[in-house]
Design a protein around this nucleic acid. Structure first.
Lengths: 166, 166
DNA sequence: GTCAGTGCAAACTTTTTGCAACTAC
DNA sequence: GTAGTTGCAAAAAGTTTGCACTGAC
């Protein structure tokens, strides 16, 4: 069982990776960039620009413009510290250092995103033979209905029948 | 080897499915809806609203508004005749009746989407044990660099070295 | 005849861009 | 000091919505 590292350690680690990345790309190590990275790595699941914007201001007490968020995310994506998903309307992002959660279950009714942990499946995907392609990472989205909605649907159906009988 | 059915047959089939769907949902069977369905099923890969809009006008000679395209796609998604992806900026759609191509390779450099055919991998994903979730369909996106970009990068690197030497 | 569906344009949302001010180096 | 970054606001791109008109039933 792979135990998740202490979060402080992970944050320290990714800060270092990002620093190296910025040096290598000859970009400046601005406080904004590190504050954003830190915020992202203190979050647990997915987030979009808008919620990151609000969180930065309210939780981290660090005001950044949306433009800077977009700019920084481009760097973080390129540095492989964040992955981007595009489920609903707005793009969703997610930290990805030391994370193996690339398997998602998405409820088509309530939009909830659940994470799936399945080592075998991960190995199967990583082991796929790709022709003329140089794999870096992947995302699997399994669509369907979550248990909660499934049960709600059942109830609804029963109620409808009941109504008709009346 | 599963041979793809004659396209005319498939188009006939999906038209029928869509008709049944519309009847069941008490929606009208407008010419626009069927023209759009037909166009989509005569296409080969992915498409976005804008290219569908142009194609409808230029190829099918059938003028529809963007609003109708969006409306119809909502129905087609619900009828399970089309799936929606969200790679780049705009949403991409794809026919999905009788198709097993839910495995995509996306080049992070040129944005090209390649389809992957791997029956074993498909079985692995379909066979995944999901807790508290009722699977309907899935999409796998493998990110990386396509052969063309890979080779272009190599060339670029060599050229840079050459320049420095000068 | 009626009302769902359509086209159009305006509104809205998300993302990108241009530019002046700022600051990491 | 200077060039890369930032914030702001305007623009662009993609999608949704309101409304009058049309046509499927």
């Amino acid at each position: 069982m792979t135990q998740v590292k202490d979060n402080t350690q992970v944050r320290e680690m990714v800060r270092q990776i990002f620093t190296e990345y910025l040096v290598q790309k000859k970009c400046r190590k601005t406080p904004e960039r590190f504050a954003i990275l830190d915020m992202i790595y203190s979050l647990d699941g997915h987030f979009d620009i808008e919620s990151l914007y609000t969180l930065m201001e309210e939780t981290a007490n660090f005001r950044v413009s949306r433009a800077t968020l977009y700019n920084t995310l481009i760097l973080l994506l390129d540095a492989r510290l964040v992955v981007k998903h595009s489920f609903g309307n707005s793009s969703q992002y997610e930290k990805c250092y030391n994370q193996e959660t690339h398997l998602h279950m998405i409820c088509t009714q309530c939009g909830k995103v659940l994470e799936l942990h399945d080592e075998k499946l991960q190995d199967d995907i990583n082991g796929a033979k790709l022709k003329r392609f140089h794999q870096s990472h992947y995302s699997l989205y399994i669509y369907g209905v979550c248990d909660k909605c499934y049960r709600a649907n059942k109830r609804k159906l029963i109620n409808q029948k009941y109504k008709k009988k009346k």
